[in-house]
């Protein structure tokens, strides 16, 4: 099936099998390796990308569903060399350790910020329920998200 999709602002016409998962198309066809396969069951959030601004688990999402939609991966978060405020906050707050969850955390936080002008800690925790990190203990991630929200407002 041919799909037309915009990935990180760039249009693509892609020929994908109906059973192709968005995660594999992003990683293998478009060489966007930022989204990771981990739990493969929509629990951990390592494969999170935004489709029309909404967070989805790319590991359990058919690529054909991206037809006519725009996809944002972590590679599309910065504008050129200028990091997104969330990325900057993650760097400065020490919210990154092994980095395997980082893309998912950033994109989930971005989706959250698009809905909350002034998010509370509870808002952040609510959104991050489905994003696992085994390294940081979460504290610096939550702090980074709140700091980025602060910078923006």
């Amino acid at each position: 099936m041919t799909i037309h999709t915009v990935v990180n602002g760039r249009p693509h016409d892609l020929d994908v099998a109906p059973h192709a998962l968005l995660l594999d198309v992003l990683r293998d066809t478009l060489d966007l390796k930022g989204a990771k396969r981990s739990c493969d069951t929509q629990v951990c959030g390592a494969c999170t990308v935004l489709v029309d601004g909404l967070a989805v688990s790319a590991c359990t999402y058919l690529a054909v569903e991206a037809d006519g939609r725009s996809v944002l991966t972590v590679e599309g978060l910065a504008e050129g060399e200028s990091l997104h405020p969330l990325q900057r906050a993650f760097v400065e707050a020490g919210a990154v350790q092994c980095g395997f969850c980082t893309a998912g955390m950033l994109l989930t936080a971005k989706a959250m910020l698009s809905e909350h002008d002034r998010p509370t800690r509870a808002d952040v925790l609510h959104y991050l329920r489905g994003s696992l990190c085994r390294c940081t203990g979460y504290r610096k991630i939550v702090d980074a998200v709140l700091a980025a929200a602060e910078t923006r407002s």
Partner: peptide, 14 residues
Amino acid sequence: PRVDAIEKVTGRAR
């Protein structure tokens, strides 16, 4: 900040 932070927040870390 960690020296690999940028590659990790931009998805470039391999």
